[in-house]
């Protein structure tokens, strides 16, 4: 199978600290892959390297075979690499419809369109509505994002990334902080993501990891520690020792 996202010897130093240590990682086409690791394992740094927020000290990042190591974050998004954030990063003053519409508009090259009213293009509107339906946001389309229930904000967080029509979607703790009552909607929409989107899930919540992921990579102290199917990783005593044993309360 072809890797849709691949890193080769990806390394990042912060002064003397090696936050990401020679990580060579492959995300297969259509994958449901989870990245786990104890606190401070370097998951966030790894995501920031993938998305271009940080640049690596060494190593390469390939997206569908093309080297994107030096591309800016927004250029990577346009190439098909979208992400969600662990802490909501939304536009407080916009509505969910406008937020999703903006992502669609940028993908359709709407950023250069300064003379038409936002929403004047039927293609944009139809697509935005479709995405809102998929993520169960139709009942709050027109509310200010800042006023939405937290669970809806988490859904919007994924919806707006999905609206970039990514080839690779990085989900950074999508269920973090979502109250039990709103959790079901969120997990159901994550499970229903179409297979042409390859998903890398970064997660603490083991229930979510094992219900969703087919493959799991374990990151410890900045390096890849183990990788395998969900069953293999769950059964691995070394993984249990470094992670599962201590991390149950996380």
């Amino acid at each position: 199978m072809a890797a849709v996202l691949e890193t080769i010897g990806l390394t990042r130093h912060f002064g003397g600290l090696v936050a990401t240590n020679a990580v060579s990682f492959r995300l297969e086409q259509g994958a449901r892959h989870a990245l786990i690791g104890p606190n401070g394992a370097g998951k966030t740094t790894f995501i920031n390297l993938l998305t271009g927020v940080l640049s690596p000290s060494e190593g390469k990042i390939l997206l569908e075979g093309a080297d994107v190591t030096t591309l800016q974050p927004d250029a990577r998004v346009r190439r098909g690499l979208a992400r969600t954030f662990q802490i909501n990063q939304l536009f407080a003053g916009l509505t969910p419809l406008e937020t999703i519409g903006l992502a669609v508009s940028e993908r359709l090259g709407g950023g250069a369109d300064w003379w038409r009213r936002f929403g004047a293009r039927p293609a944009l509107v139809t697509e935005a509505i479709g995405i809102a339906e998929r993520f169960r946001l139709t009942d709050v389309l027109d509310r200010k994002t800042a006023e939405l229930p937290y669970g809806k904000q988490r859904l919007l967080e994924i919806a707006v990334a999905f609206a970039c029509r990514p080839r690779v979607l990085l989900l950074d703790e999508p269920a973090a902080g979502v109250p039990e009552a709103e959790r079901h909607d969120l997990l159901a929409t994550v499970a229903a993501l179409p297979r042409d989107v390859s998903v890398l899930l970064i997660e603490h919540d083991m229930d979510l990891v094992f219900s969703f992921a087919e493959r799991i990579s374990v990151l410890v102290q900045g390096a890849l520690f183990r990788e395998g199917t969900a069953a293999e990783v769950a059964a691995d005593p070394a993984v249990r020792a470094v992670y599962l044993g201590e991390g149950d309360d996380a």
Binding site: D74, A82, F85, L90, L94, T99, A103, E106, C164
Partner: peptide, 15 residues
């Protein structure tokens, strides 16, 4: 949007 949140604006592909 980028005034509200430049991080997210970049993350939806806004240059």
């Amino acid at each position: 949007a980028l005034h509200h949140n430049p991080l997210r604006a970049r993350a939806v592909g806004v240059p």
